[in-house]
Design a protein around this nucleic acid. Structure first.
Lengths: 332, 332
DNA sequence: GTGAAAGCGCTAACAG
DNA sequence: CTGTTAGCGCTTTCAC
């Protein structure tokens, strides 16, 4: 593998000149630039990224830390980030935190040690305090799906409350008056925000909130099944169900059918997130779109702008959900 | 950030000694080892990975190249690889090739330039020839879901023929005699292997293969819909359908119901891959398991063994599919 | 067992 | 606009 050294020799210029054209510096004459380029071409020169990192203290690597690598959400996110970053010549290093505080901290260290220029995180085990402390270190980072007031500019998040509102409103607009709700773990901000939105829609329509129609799940499919089974068993009746995410909605659909009911004839169901498999379900699940792709892209752009000084990038931190009506909600 | 230099000063030993304990070399006295460790602790020393890479020409990074980062398959794979590699202290750099030959080649260059110690690839646009040529370069690699005779030891693949056989056999065992088939693009090896397995099962049961009951899809959901719609329209009748992957099976289920038929009462359907959402479908999709997780793990271990000289690792290149009977296939 | 010294390939002042 | 000169932080011969 040829080095910058051999290039400089062949081109008959100094090391620095080669380095300059390599880094697109201004103040290089067209002539030497041409000579250098030709020499690089001839030698099949490929710059050694590691050496560049060491000398410049820049790795051109962005670390991505997520709870899990599998699941419908993360793939979409990774894909959007990788696409955006790679076309800017940046690499993506991934690490999973497995929703475990210690493991997530290790993941961060892992990524920082690797000299990542910046981090993108979608994690929930890490405390706000930890993240705030981290913001004083030299590695800039971005946080997805989380709003931390002290770190406002670094956070890219959804108006979850509005999403929750939209979902329940859609049910109400279809004539439903008794609406059950399966939430995510209320210890998580996004879960409570969505639930608050649900309640706001109820109030707005002057519908009473009935605690018997509430079930707290954990965002996983099984809790959707458990939730719907529980709801179906209690006495208060209802005609529609809003779930705080699509996985739980899928579980609820299963439970509903296992009990011999039809969707949406007997029960209308709406999810949240609009993950790709919602279209595969039968009936196709009505849901609320979570623009994870846009958010992932935006946070990549934030890094491009902050860390690599790209210009002309408009940053938005707050994203809006939209209703995706499909087949699982019917008029009553 | 403390350097090895400060550690050596504080410990009162030379640079080399510090380096030795850092790298777990033999021939270091317990005493100096202790002193060094203490000094590191005190200074909160964290070795600079980049400098180590440059000096040792080892990055402890494994590059992963996949067609796409989203989709049900890749997440599972990435997750298994990251878990396995990270606990060995290795990092994972990902790149997507977008099923485009040039883009995949760029992905490889990208990863090699980044000084990856090895590569794991799950790609289909790259030709065997290209891969064979690549095997002469200094970066070892592994190929998933693909069998290249010249690169036998580097390939980790499924017995797709057997999988195809198992699926159709399951249909036959349930009494079906007219079985339709929606294949993947026959230009791809895995698609033809699966299809061959289908035909073998037919022959074995002395059932005639009817070309009218065949549709060539592209592994995406829409082609499953198109396929089933086409099959339903032609005159030859059938009672069961085997699909070369789960996405197409999901599409076929949709088409079946859109035409007013029930699954499995009117048509039994079986998929292939056993991706996570097959359990979310209604009815739950019977399918054939593709042990992508095991394969991903095994290929990580191959790298650990070949590149990092870990011992006691048994390598298997060929994996076996298994039948996963669920609800979408009924006796006739 | 330990230390000295020479790089790994490149960037970045600093002169000119 | 170009060349000289130090390093970046660590590994690795090679002596001792």
């Amino acid at each position: 593998m040829a080095t910058i050294y051999e290039v400089s020799a062949l081109a008959g210029v100094s090391l620095s000149s080669v380095s300059r054209v390599l880094n697109d510096h201004q103040h290089v004459s067209e002539k030497t630039k041409k000579k250098v380029m030709a020499a690089m071409q001839e030698l099949g020169f490929r710059p050694n990224t590691v050496a560049r990192s060491l000398a410049s203290n820049r790795s051109n690597c962005i670390g991505i830390l997520v709870d899990e690598l599998h699941g419908p959400f993360y793939g979409t996110m990774l894909s959007a980030i990788e696409t955006e970053l790679r076309q800017a010549g940046k690499h993506t290093i991934v690490a999973a935190g497995h929703s475990n505080e210690q493991s997530e901290q290790e993941g961060i260290d892992f990524l920082i040690d690797r000299n990542c220029d910046a981090l993108i995180m979608l994690v929930d085990a890490l405390s706000n305090d930890y993240l705030i402390k981290l913001s004083n270190s030299k590695t800039p980072f971005t946080v997805l799906n989380r709003q931390i007031p002290e770190l406002e500019g670094n956070c890219f998040y959804l108006n979850n409350e509005l999403g929750g509102y939209l979902a329940t409103k859609h049910l109400i607009d279809n004539g439903h008056k008794q609406i059950a709700y399966i939430s995510g773990p209320l210890s998580k901000q996004d879960a409570t925000d969505r639930f608050n939105g649900h309640q706001r829609a109820l109030q707005e329509a002057k519908l009473d909130y009935n605690p018997a129609l509430f079930f707290e799940g954990d965002f996983l499919i099984q809790s959707g099944r458990d939730g719907m089974n529980t709801l179906l068993k209690q006495k208060a009746c209802f005609t529609a169900l809003a779930c705080a995410n699509d996985e739980m909605a899928a579980g609820a659909m299963k439970a509903t059918r296992d009990q011999g009911f039809n969707i949406p004839e007997d029960y209308s169901i709406i999810g949240f997130d609009n993950v790709f498999f919602t279209e595969y379900l039968y009936p196709q699940l009505s849901t609320v779109n979570f623009p994870i792709k846009d958010m992932a892209k935006m946070s990549s752009q934030w890094i491009l702008k902050q860390v690599y000084k790209h210009k002309d990038i408009e940053i938005t931190n707050l994203f809006q959900p939209t209703l995706i009506p499909r087949e699982s909600v019917a008029k009553i």
